[in-house]
């Protein structure tokens, strides 16, 4: 996989993405400085594009870090309870701290994501039953517990349908002024890149890390912190999007191996590309309406993931 080619594809898709929409805008209108076209461009299309790209990067990098730390290819914010915990925090902020605004929402989503993910990591480390498939399964079980709490709260406050609305990933409501919280993800990805080697080493285990003079706990919890904050940012701003954090790091790993310093950029690029493709497809398929990104990604992602496990596990077992 060539980074240059992927980047070019992303740029081309981004340009295409800007011109897809109910209200057609044309290139020469923008160049002429047509105020209506510019308004749509800057208020709706560009923010949406930015949100899609950042979300793709954030989720896939979060997945990559989690897979490294848990030493398991099936772990991700989705299968490690991070997304569900962030949703719980988000809904608590919505219900109990209605006035406090985005900062509170992200803060609580982050806090809960951190707690949930930490519980998951402790589970991973303590379980005797080290089968690779077992780990994501208990992660999903934990996710079930947490989302049951979320559902309980929403039932109690009679907002079950609103909950579905907030929690399903959706880019169609992204406008200038309501997506900027996503920018929090960018510095996190950069930090992750700078310290990538540390995550790699921590992924090889406590003893291995100690042997190389790396503070395992510090790296582990910083990593989980980054994952939680990335996930919280996405969940609060666009909602939950499945599979991205699960399949993108896996695809990169198949192509390029697991040296994180090398693969982090590829993962981010591929994540952005994957999500922008899904977004454009979702907007075109029933044009002028659009499918929510959660659904498009769910269908495409589960397909890819099933193919992946089929290839990996069934062949191994055969």
């Amino acid at each position: 996989m060539n980074r240059l080619i992927v980047s070019i594809i992303i740029i081309m898709l981004s340009i295409a993405s800007v011109f897809v929409g109910v209200v057609g805008i044309e290139l020469d209108a923008i160049l002429r400085g047509d105020s209506h076209a510019l308004l749509i461009l800057f208020v709706s299309r560009l923010p949406r594009l930015t949100a899609v790209l950042i979300t793709g990067i954030a989720l896939s990098v979060a997945g990559l870090i989690m897979q490294q730390l848990a030493r398991n290819k099936y772990v991700s914010p989705q299968t490690g309870a991070t997304i569900f915990s962030a949703q719980l925090g988000f809904i608590i902020a919505m219900v109990y701290f209605n006035e406090a605004g985005k900062k509170m929402e992200i803060g609580l989503a982050f806090l809960f994501a951190m707690i949930g993910t930490t519980i998951f990591m402790i589970m991973v480390q303590r379980t005797k039953f080290k089968n690779v498939i077992y780990i994501p399964l208990i992660g999903m079980m934990l996710g079930n517990v947490i989302s049951a709490v979320t559902e309980f709260i929403s039932y109690r406050y009679n907002i079950v349908q609103n909950l579905k609305d907030w929690s399903a990933g959706n880019f169609s409501l992204i406008l200038k002024g309501n997506y900027e919280t996503l920018y929090i993800c960018l510095p996190l990805v950069i930090i992750a890149f700078i310290y990538a080697n540390y995550f790699n080493i921590a992924g090889m285990g406590d003893d291995f890390a100690k042997n190389l003079g790396v503070n395992y706990k510090l790296v582990l919890y910083s990593g989980l912190g980054i994952v939680s904050l990335l996930t919280a940012g996405v969940v609060v701003t666009v909602g939950s999007i499945p599979f991205v954090g699960l399949i993108v790091p896996n695809l990169v790993s198949i192509l390029k191996g697991d040296r994180m310093k090398m693969t982090l950029i590829d993962t981010a690029l591929l994540g952005a590309m994957f999500l922008i493709v899904c977004d454009i497809v979702g907007r075109l398929i029933i044009f002028p309406y659009e499918l929510p990104i959660g659904l498009t990604v769910g269908v495409v992602g589960s397909g890819i993931f099933l193919l992946m496990i089929w290839r990996r596990e069934v062949k191994r077992a055969a």
Partner: peptide, 14 residues
């Protein structure tokens, strides 16, 4: 099973 479950959940949410 869980992957298919997630897929169904995507449909449900939508």
């Amino acid at each position: 099973g869980t992957v298919l479950g997630s897929l169904f959940s995507s449909f449900n949410q939508t």
